[in-house]
């Protein structure tokens, strides 16, 4: 029998087996409450770390996609020369390698872009607002420096605004933040393992008399270990479940970020991602099961 199927069998026995077995361990004791609390706290934190991980992932993806997309040419010229310069710019862009398409943005589109800053009643006609040409890039994109020089020579009022470039460090930052979220999850899992192992070891030490009585009357190590493992597994699961549900509620009731300006895509879950936190109690139970089993086996092996 492989190690995994052996553990699966033990897990089944532990959870479905003799329910009286765990009564041999006294119900009181701080270690039991500690396990529930640790599991609760860690699950709560894991949900937030997971939300951060997913949100920063979405942010990095969105910004990375947009990076591969577009740049803009801004044309600032006297009213009489605006159309001529726009025409020149479009002509230059059409013949520039690395540019899939270029189009002059309409007044309505520009108004929509400015609305967040100036409101809906912006008198566009009275303001010297530059014209914008949206460029869709292809392949590795155009030779930006060469294009700038050409625009400067042929349409002096045109400035290539490589506006997507500033997002590179932002994407990098988002990716780092994602890594941080992943690391946090790893650290939380590691801490949970350490805390539950310590709690299990403390429980085993505190119940030395229980172990010696059980040994005296012919209990196998597996029986004794199961009594502790079952208790810790169930407590870790319950703590994890409560922690996850409360954290999910907090996240659900966070203000919708899109309404505030959509700078971030929102710390939270989308669609089926809401199912992910529900795996946390199961993982907490698995951690408790393996940690307690390990602690119990070590302790029982050391004692006659």
């Amino acid at each position: 029998m492989s190690k995994i199927s052996q553990y699966w069998q033990i897990a089944q026995d532990t959870l479905s087996g003799d329910q009286n077995a765990d009564r041999v361990v006294p119900p009181s004791g701080y270690t039991a409450s500690l396990t529930t609390f640790v599991s609760f706290a860690m699950a709560f934190l894991t949900v937030f770390a997971l939300a951060l991980f997913l949100a920063t992932g979405r942010l990095a993806d969105r910004w990375a996609t947009e990076l591969a997309g577009t740049s803009t040419v801004r044309i600032s010229a006297p009213a009489g020369q605006m159309d001529a310069q726009a025409k020149t710019v479009l002509g230059i862009l059409e013949t520039t390698p690395g540019i899939a398409s270029a189009r002059l943005m309409s007044e309505d589109e520009q108004r929509r872009l400015l609305t967040p800053w100036f409101g809906v009643d912006l008198p566009m006609d009275n303001l010297p607002i530059p014209s914008l040409v949206e460029i869709t890039e292809e392949g590795v994109g155009p030779d930006v420096n060469g294009l700038r020089l050409r625009l400067q020579a042929e349409a002096p009022g045109a400035i290539l605004d490589d506006h997507t470039r500033w997002r590179r460090p932002m994407v990098k930052a988002a990716q780092r933040l994602r890594l941080l979220g992943g690391l946090s999850i790893g650290l939380i899992v590691g801490s949970t393992i350490a805390m539950i192992t310590l709690a299990a070891q403390a429980a085993l030490s505190a119940n030395g008399q229980v172990i010696s009585v059980l040994r005296l009357i012919g209990a196998r190590d597996n029986y004794i270990a199961k009594a502790f493992v079952r208790r810790f597994t169930i407590r870790a699961f319950l703590g994890g479940l409560i922690g996850s549900l409360i954290a999910m509620l907090f996240i659900y009731f966070l203000p919708a970020v899109a309404e505030e300006g959509a700078f971030l895509t929102g710390l939270g879950f989308q669609g089926v991602q809401w199912l992910l936190p529900l795996f946390i109690p199961v993982i907490a139970a698995i951690i408790a099961f393996v940690s307690t089993r390990f602690a119990a086996n070590s302790k029982l092996q050391r004692t006659a």
């Binding site: 008399q209 010696s212 009585v213 009357i217």
Partner: peptide, 15 residues
Amino acid sequence: QFLDHLSLAENVLMP
């Protein structure tokens, strides 16, 4: 030594 949180009956039946 006994399991002090269990009754006499449960202790006797424990083996």
